[in-house]
């Protein structure tokens, strides 16, 4: 493993960085979106809404992410003759639905953890149920969620590597191609891949720290 080899491998992996980052960012955005929607739905008074959401959460938590990805990309289009022939869409959906399911439990738990007196005070001020959630309960719950949601951000980044399995050309995909043409490059390739993921995770780790601080203080200022 020489400097020379590293200089050869680096630009090849760089070709995939766009895909990795795109999949990550989209998965994070949709993951949080699903988490919040599902977390709120699980607290709904409506039995049907709650039932459907619980079903979604348990299915996605109880099965493997790779299998979910294959379902979305290979099985569903064939069965129903619709939809997801788009790799990016399948990859992002699989990751965000899966992590959204996990994170919805955090959303739900944090909302329930907000002191009941907060709801009572906002009822006494005659805020509507939606205003209570939006202005009083959710902002406080969000502060409690931050540390854990931050941890999941890092996990989502790592999970993006799975999209190479449906042929998306992310950094892992390019690394694997390189290795299959030149087996001796394997150590360099995988060392660099570790570094790539770690360096991308660094800002996320810092972000999580920040989240923990905000959370501890209880107020963002």
């Amino acid at each position: 493993m020489t400097i020379h080899a590293i200089i050869d491998v680096f630009p090849v992996l760089m070709k995939g960085i766009n895909i990795t980052i795109t999949v990550f960012l989209l998965s994070a955005i949709f993951g949080y979106l699903f988490a919040i929607i599902a977390g709120l739905c699980r607290l709904s008074h409506n039995l049907v809404v709650r039932g459907i959401t619980s079903f979604y959460v348990e299915i996605f938590r109880g099965t493997s992410l790779i299998v979910q990805l294959f379902w979305l990309y290979y099985a569903i289009p064939m069965l129903f003759n619709v939809g997801i022939d788009n790799r990016l869409m399948a990859g992002v959906l699989a990751i965000s639905l899966n992590y959204g399911a996990y994170m919805s439990e955090i959303v739900r738990g944090s909302i329930l953890a907000v002191d009941k007196g907060q709801t009572e005070a906002s009822i006494a001020l005659n805020l509507s149920p939606f205003q209570r959630m939006r202005m009083v309960i959710f902002p406080q719950a969000l502060r409690m969620m931050l540390p854990e949601l931050g941890n999941y951000l890092i996990q989502m980044l790592k999970a993006t590597s799975l999209v190479s399995l449906i042929g998306m050309t992310d950094i892992l995909y390019h690394g694997n191609i390189l290795r299959s043409t030149d087996l001796s490059a394997a150590p360099t390739v995988y060392l660099l891949l570790l570094l790539f993921y770690f360096i991308m995770a660094l800002p996320l780790i810092l972000l999580t720290r920040k989240g923990e601080q905000i959370s501890k203080k209880g107020v963002a200022r």
Binding site: G117, L127, S128, Q131, V219
Partner: peptide, 26 residues
Amino acid sequence: GMVFQHFNLFPHMTILQNCMTAPIQV
């Protein structure tokens, strides 16, 4: 209107925001 034993102020809002929110929103 009601005042509670344990205050139940909104901790993420300033004192002024605590007072202003309901008149504006409600």
